[in-house]
């Protein structure tokens, strides 16, 4: 009796403060957005209830759909690019395959410590029509009007941004994987090496099965982060030219803060939440199956 009472008090003291701070800061804004999403409202004046009109308008807007496409590509590069890359890098360092692994670890992590605004400015200084790379190519190809045409291509303008995203955030996944690799009992790997296991056998039979949960965790994080991505792209291209690099968060930002469509913007931000939830649920079911098979 006293034990269970003591447990409850301890629980309250451990969990209570987080819940309190989190709830007080997050709940009001979310409920506010959810409700505003059903209205037509400039933020000033009286909101008008319009039901699901904001959502239907959004789904029929080609700009939103282009943004959605780009967002899904970012999700793909995060889940199928950053996670495997991050794991590969962590594994290389963990297995001591290169000399100076400390140095390389720092190099890979470095991009994350730089703010998105700085990264965007740097990349613009390099790949813009007056940038370092463009100038170099003009000399090499002896063509004073050379520019990177990929930035003006409706289908592929997002690709350079995907590349920056891959470069910038892979370090996060490396750190997570490295921390977890170091929890594997070294004896297991030593035993495998003594038994003559090849490197790929160690990787696929010993290490990876222990990482399934971590991969799921990182996938959730990657999805949530990808659909929200804003700072970097806003500073790099602002979604342009001609919406080719638009993402949903920029679409939301412009509608809310530039066009004063507060209600519509709120609906878009709720859409980001719904889309993330959908994707995470899908990923969860995939991993449940994987777990059932391997663990």
């Amino acid at each position: 009796m006293t034990a269970s009472r003591e447990k409850k008090i301890a629980y309250g003291m451990l969990v209570g403060p987080s819940v309190l701070i989190y709830a007080s800061i997050i709940i009001f804004p979310i409920v506010f957005s959810l409700v505003a999403g059903f209205t037509e409202w400039s933020g000033l004046g009286v909101p008008e209830f319009v039901g699901l009109k904001n959502y239907t308008r959004m789904l029929s807007d080609p700009v939103f759909r282009l943004g959605l496409r780009n967002n899904l590509l970012i999700v793909a590069i995060s889940v199928f690019g950053q996670i495997p890359f991050g794991f590969a890098l962590a594994y290389i360092i963990y297995r001591r395959m290169v000399r100076g692994h400390d140095f390389f670890e720092t190099m890979i992590f470095l991009p994350i410590t730089i703010s998105a605004i700085v990264v965007a400015k740097l990349w613009n200084q390099i790949f813009s029509p007056a940038g370092l790379f463009t100038q170099l190519m003009r000399i090499i190809r002896d063509d004073p009007r050379f520019v990177l045409s990929v930035f003006e291509d409706r289908t592929f303008a997002i690709v350079p941004i995907l590349f920056v995203i891959l470069w910038m955030y892979t370090g996060i996944y490396m750190v997570i994987f490295l921390a977890n690799l170091q929890r594997i009992d070294p004896g297991v790997i030593e035993a495998a090496v003594i038994d003559g296991a090849r490197e790929h056998q160690i990787l696929f039979r010993v290490v990876l099965p222990q990482m399934v949960n971590i991969v799921f965790t990182t996938a959730v994080f990657a999805i949530a982060g990808s659909l929200k991505s804003f700072d970097l792209i806003f500073a790099m291209t602002g979604g342009g030219p001609a919406h080719y690099t638009e993402v949903i968060a920029i679409y939301m930002y412009l509608n809310t803060f530039k066009y004063y469509n507060y209600g519509f913007g709120s609906a878009v931000s709720m859409m980001i939440v719904f889309l993330s939830l959908g994707l995470i649920t899908a990923v969860q079911s995939v991993f449940r199956r994987l777990e059932a098979r391997y663990v």
Partner: peptide, 10 residues
């Protein structure tokens, strides 16, 4: 759920 909320929307 908080992972999914963007700063700008709040």
């Amino acid at each position: 759920m908080g992972l999914l909320v963007t700063a700008h929307s709040v």
